[in-house]
Design a protein around this nucleic acid. Structure first.
Lengths: 113, 113
DNA sequence: ATTTTATATCGCAAATATACGATGAATTGT
DNA sequence: ACAATTCATCGTATATTTGCGATATAAAAT
């Protein structure tokens, strides 16, 4: 692999790709779903709902936290996680880039597509 | 890695993760943007817009095609690509799962988050 | 028929991601 | 103080992704 080609892409392309990568694993989607279904933070319980070892779940949580999709604090014995909806909705809104373009762009060629 | 833990996750979780994985690289986001900006199919031109070798771009196109996000036909000497907006919008709509939940779910704990 | 052009595919190397047991750190309960 | 609990981190094995040169394929141009 060449040395960091990322610089050649635009910032918004990288940002959207990073968001997509953060949720590109079923476990992380499942974690977000579990968190979304709770009105308040979850302190534990996540590991039990997933078919993965505690260490692995902790690693997935770390990734979601790294990109800012979830917030978490350590409260005494347990940790406490919840979704940062501001960040989440901001990322989803980025798909608007395509939604806007889709109005004008449609393939008019009969021979292909 | 264990042997295909995917079976332990739900179908919609896997589907959303697969979509995210397909667009989890700046090059593939860039390709979609290029395609979206055109009213009709693009026959070539994509390689020139990216900082990658032709073989690499072809591989990224293949991935986008595999998940159905883009359609492509070979027309004589050149290939012809365009976005399948139906598939694209269908995937984006999946984020509705979270949007619905976000209305009820918000952290009420003062101590965390 | 041969060359040129456009794109796909193969094969390999390097980089990343994933999973998990073992261990560490901090806290609660006794 | 000590044991139990909860979660993070380390180390490591394996799998997947990425990138690209080389090569294949197929049509167009000469």
């Amino acid at each position: 692999m060449a040395i960091n080609r990322k610089m050649d892409f635009q910032a918004d392309e990288i940002a959207l790709a990073d968001f997509a990568k953060a949720i590109s694993h079923p476990a992380r989607i499942a974690i977000l779903k579990i968190l979304a279904q709770h009105k308040s933070c979850i302190c534990g319980e996540i590991v039990e709902g997933l078919p993965l070892a505690q260490a692995t779940v902790s690693q997935h949580l770390k990734e979601l936290k790294a990109i800012g999709l979830i917030k978490g604090t350590i409260e005494g014995k347990t940790s406490c996680y919840c979704i940062d909806w501001g960040v989440f909705n901001q990322f989803v809104a980025h798909f608007g880039i395509f939604a806007d373009l889709s109005k004008n762009a449609s393939c008019q060629s009969q021979s292909c597509c």
